[in-house]
């Protein structure tokens, strides 16, 4: 059998890589307790990337493998990068439109209106029938109703 694709990794190498991985795991947990501020994320992801690289190069033996396989894998990774980066070009720059709100605009306005109405003290002789817990449980009801799929 030829060497490419059938490279037998020595046990010592495997064990060394394993040792490295365990060390990096301990390191990343330890670093998590150090207040690094804005650096925390890059450091953690950097350590994870190092670990992943070790696994790919040695455990998966990509280092000794056919270059086509390496290219395949690299293109896959590049695509993930593209996906994340380009999506975040949108989400990071929505600017004055603001981020998403936890509720719909309609619900927010309704809540504001409800608060206003309470302040206005509705005269008692007006129509008043709706259940008292309204509108707080609307969200839950709407969710349940849409789950039924009744259309």
């Amino acid at each position: 059998m030829s060497d490419d694709g059938h490279h037998i990794l020595p046990k010592a190498t495997l064990l060394k890589v394993f040792g490295g991985l365990i060390f990096l795991t301990v390191l990343t947990v330890a670093v998590a307790y150090v207040p690094l501020g804005p650096l925390a994320v890059p450091v953690a992801i950097g350590i994870a990337a190092t670990k992943a690289t070790l696994v790919v190069l040695y455990f998966m033996a990509l280092r000794y493998d056919n270059p086509v396989n390496a290219l395949t894998f690299t293109i896959g990774i590049i695509m993930v990068m593209v996906f994340i980066t380009f999506t975040m070009i949108d989400t990071a720059f929505r600017g004055d439109m603001g981020n998403v709100d936890r509720q719909t605009m309609g619900e927010i306005e309704r809540e504001q209106e409800a608060a206003q109405q309470q302040q206005e003290q509705i005269p008692s002789e007006q129509l008043r029938v709706a259940p008292a817990d309204y509108p707080d449980d609307r969200g839950a009801d709407a969710g349940a109703a849409s789950g039924d799929g009744d259309s």
């Binding site: 990343t28 998590a32 953690a44 992801i45 790919v56 998966m60």
Partner: peptide, 18 residues
Amino acid sequence: WHLVDIVWIFLFPMLYLI
């Protein structure tokens, strides 16, 4: 199996640590 491992290598810090 190594790929499953790699995914976890990223999930662990992302979800638990940072």
